[in-house]
Write a protein that binds this DNA or RNA. Structure first.
Lengths: 115, 115
DNA sequence: CTAGGTATTTAGTAATGCTAAGTATACAGC
DNA sequence: GCTGTATACTTAGCATTACTAAATACCTAG
């Protein structure tokens, strides 16, 4: 029953984290999948069908932009994403929202209400 | 654009918080609306149509139970919710999941990756 | 030439918060 | 009495977003 909670908690957070990672370093989908998985002990072990739509949303919103990289060597072509100025601004706003959100939620656990 | 983020972040959290509040003190829908609003500076200022379905889900899942309180004084009847044993166990598991989730997300912000 | 790793795309489903409207009781002010 | 406001619960329908599953395509190793 609590697997559902973990799934729902990701809503919004995933897009926020993808923006964060792209802001830190231009990258492409497949690498993001690995970075998210490795950096989260499997919590963010996404299937491709979860990640790519997030990238398309971010691009539609003008927060990231992409260019095709014709395979270095002879590898499959990659779509390299990098952050736009608007993306970097949004990144900061989102991090603030996350910090405030955490604080608010935690206040309900800490708040010494009746038991 | 970032209003959407705050909205999405609530997914899962709302049900978790309602369970927490009911575990602390048997209560009813309308009072929960006020407690959530007042305890969050408006972040959890829900409409009834958001809260009541959460209560029904928690009850369907056997985590809380309800009884009708025929209006004290002459007020409208209230549906009083209280936590079940399973609800109290779930409450603890969910709080742990929340703590771990926060930690994982924060690690992506703190993690000194490339800039 | 088959298997597996790399890399992207898309269709369809499920969960959950949102808006909006409706029902009903009690009380205060005109 | 009538109107508005506060209390209190219910329901229908929509939007967003993560999930599964499958398809496409290239390259390397055996």
């Amino acid at each position: 029953m609590e697997d559902r909670l973990a799934q729902q908690l990701k809503k919004g957070v995933l897009e926020m984290l993808v923006l964060e990672l792209v802001c830190r370093k231009a990258t492409y989908g497949y690498e993001l999948l690995q970075r998210l998985k490795e950096g989260s002990e499997g919590l963010f072990q996404l299937k491709e069908g979860t990640l790519y739509p997030i990238l398309y949303r971010l691009e539609d919103d003008g927060l990231i932009e992409s260019r095709w990289s014709q395979g270095e060597g002879r590898a499959a072509p990659k779509k390299i994403y990098s952050a736009t100025d608007r993306g970097r601004q949004a990144r900061l706003r989102r991090q603030l929202i996350w910090v405030e959100f955490k604080k608010t939620v935690d206040s309900f656990y800490e708040g010494g209400n009746e038991s």
